[in-house]
Design a protein around this nucleic acid. Structure first.
Length: 270
DNA sequence: ATGACTGGTGTGACCAGA
């Protein structure tokens, strides 16, 4: 089973890019962030034509998250964090799909730091810590996927010395991320590529993509039972080079799970 | 240190992103 995460940076403005990417790569599950679309302007029909069902949590102008699944039923479990520090910001959605619990998250940016936006980021990370702990204790196979807005280590940014005071790389941010991982989660991309330079975001400014001056901020955290099933973890880097593209690239993992067993439904009574 | 780019909103000398 292939699961992807993609900060689309404006769902309706990027719809051609999204559809092209879905057609080319056909992920079984896709977590999207930064829809920038109100709840009632979600392109449900265009996605259905490609075979995708969706659950989404929209908001006017900013934020917004969605989970898509190809030919599998999605069951919404949680909309927003249980103790969300600001319920007006649509940043978290959890579903059951294909025998997995999948959380799609868009963690606050937090700049400028220090300041109220950074305080909000840290509060959000604290509540996310509690949710992740509950999921870990529940023992289900869980994937926590999304735009974390966290640069976990110096090797995850092209020039770490320029980012030490940035909300994505400050000590408090990295420590909060490490505390979540310390519950027993595995950073899937780093687990399979321990020494590679891997970026998932490139600024629109200064030809950052062409210069490969990027950040690794989109992550998959896996619960322990899924780690032995992890077969691949990659970035669709070429998508970042498409016309009218997002500033993030899609990231995906392949898990050795049968789609069919979880997709099969009981025959309808007749 | 600054600003370069982009979408959304609604034409702002706008905001927010990372």
């Amino acid at each position: 089973m292939r699961i992807a995460t993609y900060n689309i940076n404006g769902l309706n403005a990027r719809l051609p890019v999204l559809l092209r990417w879905l057609e080319q790569t056909q992920p079984d599950v896709a977590c999207l962030q930064e829809l920038k679309s109100p709840q009632d302007r979600f392109p449900q029909e265009a996605l259905a034509e490609l075979g995708y069902e969706a659950v989404w949590h929209g908001q006017k102008s900013w934020n917004g998250v969605a989970v898509l699944a190809r030919g599998m039923p999605l069951v919404e479990v949680q909309r927003g964090l249980p103790e969300d520090p600001d319920e007006t910001q649509s940043r978290y959605l959890e579903v059951d799909v294909g025998g997995l619990r999948v959380a799609c998250l868009y963690l606050p940016n937090g700049n400028p730091a220090p300041g109220p936006k950074f305080d909000y980021k840290l509060r959000w990370m604290e509540q996310f810590f509690h949710r992740a702990a509950d999921l870990m204790a529940g023992g289900l196979p869980v994937v926590l996927a999304g735009d974390y807005n966290v640069i976990p280590t110096p090797r995850d940014v092209y020039k770490p010395e320029r980012w030490v005071d940035d909300a994505l790389f400050r000590e408090e941010t990295r420590e909060a991320f490490d505390r979540v991982v310390g519950q027993g989660w595995t950073d899937a991309v780093r687990a399979l590529h321990p020494n590679e330079t891997i970026y998932t975001f490139f600024d629109y400014f200064r030809n950052a993509y062409q210069r490969r001056a990027g950040l690794r901020i989109d992550h998959f955290l896996l619960s322990p039972a899924l780690v032995p099933k992890l077969r691949a973890a990659e970035v669709d880097l070429d998508v970042r080079g498409w016309e009218k593209t997002s500033d993030h690239a899609p990231v995906w993992i392949e898990l050795d799970l049968k789609r069919s067993a979880s997709r099969r439904r009981k025959p309808a009574a007749s």
